[in-house]
Simulated assay, not measured.
Amino acid sequence: ILMSLLLIATILTLYSRFTPGPLPFNVSRDSRWFTTQPSPITPSTCQPAENMVFIKTHKTGSTSLHCIFCRYGYANKLSFVFSTRNTKDGHIRKEHLNQSIILPPIGGFVNSSSKYNILTGHVSYKRKTINSFMEDNPIYVTILREPATHVESHMNFFSQRKQVMASMQAFLKKPRTSKNEAGRNNQLREFGLSFESTLNERIVNETIMTLDKEFDLVLILEYFDESLILLKHLLCWSFEDIIYLAQNQRTTRETITDTFRHN
């Protein structure tokens, strides 16, 4: 009898040791040894952004990003800032942004009090002026790229290799007096800095610090996909919202020399 009791006790001990305890709430009782059910998902507290300003820069992968913003705006029936004088793509390149040259917002009319949801295009960056046309508190986004590859892309796309090379060589010889604008500081000048101001190191540094404070996100072309993930989180969008096809990519190009790139 004693041996029988010891055997039963041993069996019960082993059973309790190797039998799972109480099941957590998210585990399927019917298949607890093999599968689990996902834990309840806490609803996101953020709301998809609808008011945004994308300052488009030349030859930085910006057209691919521009198409993402356009698709989102069209799908959600949002109002765009588009030029009436540029019927091809609506950009406002060398003109001052004012109500007389932009299309009225959806449901509004020219010179009405209605505001816009999205500005995505080439426009001189003047934050106060842009804000006067936009719905409250738009998110500001732009994109940049490594300077040497930017110069290379610029001269290839616009067929300006000779002009760009000459401009950069002149700048290297006399950086304080060179006045040829081709290929020089294009990215910084697209944020409203004059050509002459790019020669002033103090103004350049102050401008960069100001832009750093004013922009919510600066994407980098060399990390385009990673930047899109940051954009997705910033705007509270879905993965479907940031799917893209690369635009304006060239299969052949003239490259610059390593020495030129270093300089």
Rank of each mutant, 00 (worst) to 15 (best):
S39V: 12
L97F: 03
L65V: 05
I41V: 15
L211Y: 02
L199Y: 09
F34P: 02
E146W: 04
K213P: 03
I101T: 06
F34V: 15
T252Y: 05
Q160H: 10
V151R: 00
I68H: 04
Q47F: 15
S197T: 02
Q47Y: 12
T259I: 15
I203F: 05
L217Y: 04
Q160D: 08
D212N: 11
E226V: 07
N200H: 09
D258F: 05
D89K: 09
V53F: 02
G61W: 01
L211W: 02
F224I: 01
V110I: 11
S159R: 11
N186P: 03
F69S: 01
F54D: 00
A166H: 04
S197A: 12
L230C: 08
S178E: 09
E201N: 11
L6D: 14
K128S: 13
T259C: 12
V27G: 01
M155H: 01
A49W: 05
I130F: 07
N156C: 07
H233N: 14
N111P: 02
N185T: 07
Q47D: 09
G192I: 00
A170R: 03
T87H: 06
N263G: 11
T57L: 02
R161M: 09
P175M: 04
T198K: 01
A246F: 12
L245S: 13
T257G: 13
L172P: 04
S159N: 15
K115T: 08
E254M: 09
G121S: 07
T142A: 07
T149H: 07
E190G: 01
L103W: 09
N86H: 04
Q163L: 10
P43R: 06
F239N: 15
D212L: 11
A75T: 08
F157L: 06
I143Y: 00
F18Y: 14
N186G: 10
I208W: 06
S64I: 04
L199W: 07
W237N: 03
L12M: 14
E50D: 13
T42V: 12
T10C: 15
A75R: 10
L6Q: 10
V123D: 00
M134C: 06
R85Y: 12
L103R: 07
Y116S: 01
S31G: 05
I8Y: 13
I130A: 02
T149S: 15
S64L: 03
L193I: 06
T60A: 03
T177R: 07
R261M: 11
H66V: 04
Q163P: 02
S4N: 12
N156S: 06
T35S: 13
T129S: 10
S178D: 09
Y15E: 11
E214N: 08
E50P: 00
E254K: 14
Q187G: 07
E226F: 10
